[in-house]
Amino acid sequence: MQGKVIFIGAGPGDPELLTIKAAKAIEKADTIIYAGSLVNPEVLSGAKPEAVIYNSAELNLDEIVEIMGKSVGEGKLVARVHTGDPAIYGAIAEQIQYLKARNINYEIIPGVSSLFASAAALEAELTLPEVSQTVIITRPSGRTPKPEREAIFRLAEHQATMCIFLGVHMISKVVAELLTFYDPLTPVAVVQKASWDDQKIVRGTLDDIVDQVQEAGITKTALIVVGDVLGTDKVTPSKLYDAHFTHEYRKGEGE
């Protein structure tokens, strides 16, 4: 594993949600670059004493890739530690582009997204039969632009379960766009720092969530989850475990 960069999904915060493969990579790494503004430092507790650790919150892209290139050139193993899963708003594509251009070996270890930690905290199934079978993952437009066709008010037309990252600081605007198609009484929850010791949950409807979030003082590091899956008491059983449903592994009763 020498002379290589490993992108690691560190999970949502709870160090016990770090995968075994990720933990082993961190233990072996000579150089560690972690997203210090988001990654729980306890995730790095298994690093060897001589490992050189950098906080990428203090670095720009050029500085990050320079550290990667220099370390790999010295035959070292680099752990690039991102929050959650690096495939979702992880900014890994620009780093990979650099590595490919220089023929530097790399791999990606997936992690537990805050999306799924939030669903666990809410004790929710995001894809309930006959309620919603679609999950839309998005963010509002901000300093990082997004295609107009992906505007929240356009995605809201589907009225599916929607999980909105990086938007709690502009929740008034987000809710205004959602109300283009969602009913004002649609359930919504905001989960701040999912799986951390100081996790905070605010529940409400589109009609009152803005006031609740402002009263709770939540302005960052939170996920907005919207949809009827959060508010229904009527759960239609899946066919998978239906006693009368036949599939590859089981014959249904009465058939």
Rank of each mutant, 00 (worst) to 15 (best):
Glu27His: 12
Gln159Tyr: 01
Ala194Ser: 14
Lys28Ile: 08
Lys251Asp: 04
Val131Gly: 11
Val202Asp: 08
Gly231Asp: 00
Lys193Ile: 11
Val229Met: 09
Ile53Asn: 13
Ala189Glu: 00
Val235Glu: 08
Thr83Gln: 05
Ser45Trp: 11
Ala91His: 12
Gly36Thr: 01
Arg139Thr: 07
Thr144Trp: 02
Gly90Lys: 07
Ser114Phe: 00
Ile137Lys: 11
Asp62Phe: 05
Gly217Ala: 02
Ala101Arg: 10
Gly111Glu: 03
Leu155Pro: 10
Ala57Thr: 00
Met1Arg: 02
Lys24His: 06
Ala22Gln: 07
Gly13Trp: 02
Ile26Gly: 11
Val175Lys: 08
Ala23Tyr: 14
Asn55Tyr: 01
Pro129Glu: 07
Leu179Phe: 09
Val168Ile: 02
Gln192Ile: 10
Tyr98Val: 07
Val52Asn: 07
Thr246Asp: 01
Glu27Phe: 04
Gly13Asp: 06
Ala243Ile: 13
Gln95Thr: 05
Ala10Ile: 07
Ile92Ser: 11
Met1Lys: 00
Val81Glu: 06
Ala243Val: 14
Gly252Phe: 05
Glu16Tyr: 00
Phe245Asp: 02
Leu240Asn: 04
Leu44Glu: 08
Val81Ile: 10
Leu44Gln: 08
Glu255Gly: 14
Phe116Asp: 04
Gly75Phe: 13
Val65Cys: 09
Arg139Ala: 10
Asp197Val: 15
Ala121Phe: 06
Asp208Gln: 12
Glu123Ala: 10
Thr186Asp: 07
Ile20Trp: 06
Val225Glu: 09
Lys193Ser: 13
Ala101Thr: 09
Gln95Cys: 06
Ala47Lys: 15
Val168Tyr: 01
Val112Phe: 05
Tyr54His: 13
Leu61Tyr: 12
Ala51Leu: 09
Val210Tyr: 03
Ile96Gly: 07
Ala25Pro: 02
Leu38Phe: 14
Gln95Gly: 06
Thr127His: 01
Glu58Lys: 15
Ile20Leu: 14
Tyr89Ala: 07
Asn40Arg: 04
Val131Asn: 10
Ala87Met: 08
Lys173Ile: 07
Pro129Ala: 04
His169Ser: 15
Ser172His: 15
Ala176Tyr: 11
Asn103Gln: 13
Lys239Arg: 15
Asp62Thr: 06
Gln214His: 12
Ala194Gly: 10
Glu157Val: 14
Pro110Cys: 00
Gly11Thr: 03
Trp196Lys: 02
Pro129Lys: 11
Leu206Asn: 08
Asp242Pro: 00
Lys200Phe: 06
Ile96Met: 12
Asn55His: 04
Lys70Pro: 02
His247Trp: 15
Gly36Asp: 02
Gly217Trp: 01
Gln97His: 03
Glu16Lys: 13
Glu63His: 08
Met162Asp: 01
Leu126Glu: 01
Val43Asp: 02
Glu255Asp: 13
Gly227Lys: 04
Val131Trp: 04
Glu253Asp: 12
Gln192Tyr: 03
Tyr34Lys: 06
Gln97Asn: 02
Ile26Pro: 14
Glu66Cys: 01
Ala216Cys: 03
Thr134Pro: 01
Thr83Cys: 04
Asp211Cys: 03
Ala93Ser: 14
Ala121Thr: 11
Leu44Phe: 12
Glu130Ser: 15
Gly11Phe: 02
Thr127Gln: 09
Ile171Ser: 04
Ile104Tyr: 07
Leu240Thr: 08
Thr31Tyr: 14
Leu128His: 13
Asp208Asn: 15
Gly46Leu: 15
Val235Ile: 14
